[in-house]
Simulated scan of single mutants.
Amino acid sequence: MTMTDVNDLVARAYGDPAVVGMVLTGSRARGLATRYSDIDLCVVVSERRESWWQGRRTAEVDAFVCTVDELADTSDIWQRYAFRGAQVLVDKLDGVIAQLVQRQAVPTQAEANTWAREGLDGYVNLLYRAAKSRRDGDLAAAALDIAESVSWLLTTIFALHGRLRPYNKYLRWELTTCPMGEPWSADTLPERLLHDPAGLFPDIERLARERGLADVLDAWGDDLHLLRQPRTA
Rank of each mutant, 00 (worst) to 15 (best):
S75N: 08
R49F: 05
V10F: 02
S27M: 10
F83Y: 15
S27C: 08
R28Y: 12
T58D: 15
V65M: 14
A63M: 15
S51R: 06
S75W: 05
Y81I: 04
W78Y: 14
L24N: 10
W52M: 05
R48Y: 10
G26Y: 08
A63C: 08
V20R: 07
G26M: 01
R80H: 09
L32C: 09
A86F: 14
I39S: 00
T67F: 02
G55A: 13
G85C: 05
T67A: 01
R80E: 07
D40A: 05
R84H: 08
D62A: 11
D38K: 09
S75H: 07
Y14N: 12
A33F: 04
S27P: 14
L24S: 06
V61E: 11
Q54I: 13
L71Y: 09
Q54A: 13
D76M: 06
A33R: 08
L41N: 03
V20C: 12
T74P: 14
Y14S: 03
R12L: 14
D76C: 01
T67L: 11
R49K: 13
A29G: 13
A86K: 06
L41Y: 00
V10E: 02
T67E: 02
I77H: 07
A11H: 15
V19P: 04
S75P: 03
R80F: 07
F83D: 02
G85R: 13
T34M: 05
T25P: 01
T25F: 10
V65I: 00
R35F: 01
G26R: 00
A63Y: 01
Q54M: 12
E47F: 10
D40S: 11
R12N: 07
V45Q: 03
G26L: 01
V45D: 11
S46R: 15
